[in-house]
Nucleic acid binder design. Structure first.
Length: 465
RNA sequence: GGCGACGUCGCCAAGUGGCAAGGCAAGGGUCUGCAAAACCCUCAUCAUGGGUUCAAAUCCCAUCGUCGCCUCCA
């Protein structure tokens, strides 16, 4: 039984789906006006890991991620660069898709965009007006009437009265209440706009997600996810819109990931302290970013710096090492060593599942994986054969794959193997004659070419590195 | 100022009432001609001060500190 932390109730709850065996999950995607950064990667990775685990547990996941391709930022950037806003957003959508692929993130089963959802959005706004939850102002803007929603503020645990007190929002005369927010914005000159019952205009920020949710997943969904910086106002307003429109509970579980911390601060567009995904991947493997996320807890802030990345990279190598073959000359491992290994396989499986069932505790599950890593290495050192290691290694690989780790061994140029083996063979002869200098020279030169040699009393092995 | 989350070894971090997982780093050792890898050993009483309890990192109160939101943001 999977339990997950629900922001709405601030408690862990059992996952009970609306339809048996199916999880409807909507995760807020990016506004596409710039290169995506590693903070986006964290969020995408968190929900990718969650999705993979839910699927591993036997559910089918309907996963929707939207692209916000109509927005002030896009329009501004388009104007600055002289590129058509739709061309610009298309370019960044393509880039983002590529980023996700590079990070081994499973594509969402549906990826709607604002620009292609206009009829649904307009119908949604009209519906809210019809039900008295929204009103059109004289200038063509349409606002949501917060006072019409009696539990407004329940997700972010705020009260309307409190918000007004500390609010820095300039009260617009056209609004009935200062916290009323725009569902539809009347067009300004030079902006993309669409025809509507209230004149030419474009959607506000929050309505798109309500409308796309309804279109793709229906009136009610199981999980709604996103970064915790979206709790207010975005998700709060989504709830207000959707529940006012349908009269039903919108999402059963609200899940929010913590922020990536770069030198102690949130990485964000406005602070300008950004590392793009592209930039990251030019320096490190995709698995390193995933390991960093796995080693933390998805709801807490995640430290992103050279030190934590080095740690993630080393941990990754440790798992990869455990998957390597048995030693060349296999002795016979004693029964005790083999029993210890199979015991650990069971312990790890159980530990992994109970950690992950408990609100996707990846750090705890990872700890279990490392215990299996050690058991495998110990058995190998004791002389276990490939066959004897097989089950444990398969388990390790399976559980790592549920995490979405690829665990790629580096490979070199094709066809080089036989020449490398030849060199190793010659070197073995050289070593027999104790010509250490020559032997070391071969090792050093191969190292420079990306081949690492390891000698042991059972023989010599090599690998690309 | 308001609301929320949090403070566990040098770093990342699990654990939320019953003797403090795991990874990285560090030190010592085994193996090795040397090296790499691996393995073994060592390495914390849980921000501070009170309180509840037979028993608290884990519950309550206070203080200090950090982060997020309140404005675009994963």
């Amino acid at each position: 039984m999977i339990r997950l932390y629900n922001t709405l109730t601030r408690k862990k709850e059992e996952l009970q789906t609306l339809e048996p065996g199916i999880v409807k999950m909507y995760v807020c995607g990016p506004t596409v006006y710039n290169d995506a950064h590693v903070g986006h990667a964290m969020s995408a990775l968190v929900f990718d890991i969650i999705r993979r685990y839910i699927e591993y547990r036997g559910y089918a996941v309907k996963h929707v991620m939207n692209y916000t391709d109509v927005d002030d930022k896009i329009i501004n950037r388009a104007n600055q660069t002289g590129v058509d806003p739709f061309v610009l957003s298309q370019r960044y959508i393509d880039d983002f898709d590529q980023n996700l692929t590079d990070l081994n993130i499973q594509p969402a089963t549906a990826r709607p965009r604002v620009s292609k959802s206009m009829p649904q959005i307009i119908a949604f706004v009209q519906g809210l007006i019809d039900k008295g939850h929204a009103y059109a102002a004289s200038n063509g803007d349409v606002y949501f009437r917060v006072l019409s929603d009696d539990d407004y503020g329940k997700l972010s645990a705020r009260k309307l009265d409190d918000m007004q007190a500390g609010s820095r929002i300039e009260v617009e005369e056209l609004k009935e209440h200062p916290m009323d927010f725009a569902l539809w914005k009347s067009a300004k000159p030079g902006e993309p706009s669409w025809d509507s019952p209230w004149g030419k205009g474009r959607p506000g920020w929050h309505i798109e997600c309500s409308a796309m949710n309804l279109a793709e997943l229906g009136e009610q969904i199981d999980i709604h996810g996103g970064g915790n910086d979206l709790i207010f106002p975005h998700h709060e307003n989504e709830i207000a819109q959707s529940e006012s429109f349908t009269g039903k509970q919108f999402a059963r579980y609200w899940m929010h990931n913590g922020m990536l911390q770069l030198s102690g601060e949130k990485m964000s567009k406005s602070l300008g302290n950004i590392v793009s995904i592209k930039e990251f991947l030019s320096k490190r493997e995709a698995d390193v970013m995933r390991m960093l996320v796995l080693n933390g807890s998805y709801r807490a802030p995640l430290m992103f710096n050279e030190e934590t990345l080095d740690g993630a990279e080393k941990g990754l190598e440790r798992i990869v090492t455990a998957l390597r073959p048995a030693l060349p000359a296999v002795g016979h491992a004693n029964q005790g060593a083999l029993n210890a290994l199979s015991t650990q396989v069971e312990l790890t499986k159980n530990g992994y599942l109970s950690a992950m069932d408990d609100d996707f505790n990846t750090a705890g599950a990872l700890g279990n994986l490392f215990e299996l890593v050690r058991a495998i290495n110990t058995a190998r050192d004791a002389g276990a054969s490939g066959l004897e290691l097989q089950h444990a290694q398969a388990t390790l690989r399976e559980l790592a794959q549920v995490f979405g780790l690829q665990l790629k061994e580096k490979t070199g140029s094709e066809g080089a193997d036989k020449f490398i083996n030849l060199l190793i063979e010659i070197r073995a002869e050289v070593r027999k004659q104790k010509l250490w200098q020559l032997s070391d020279q071969i090792r050093d030169r191969l190292k420079e070419l990306g081949v690492t040699i390891a000698d042991s009393k059972e023989g010599t092995t090599w690998r690309w590195e």
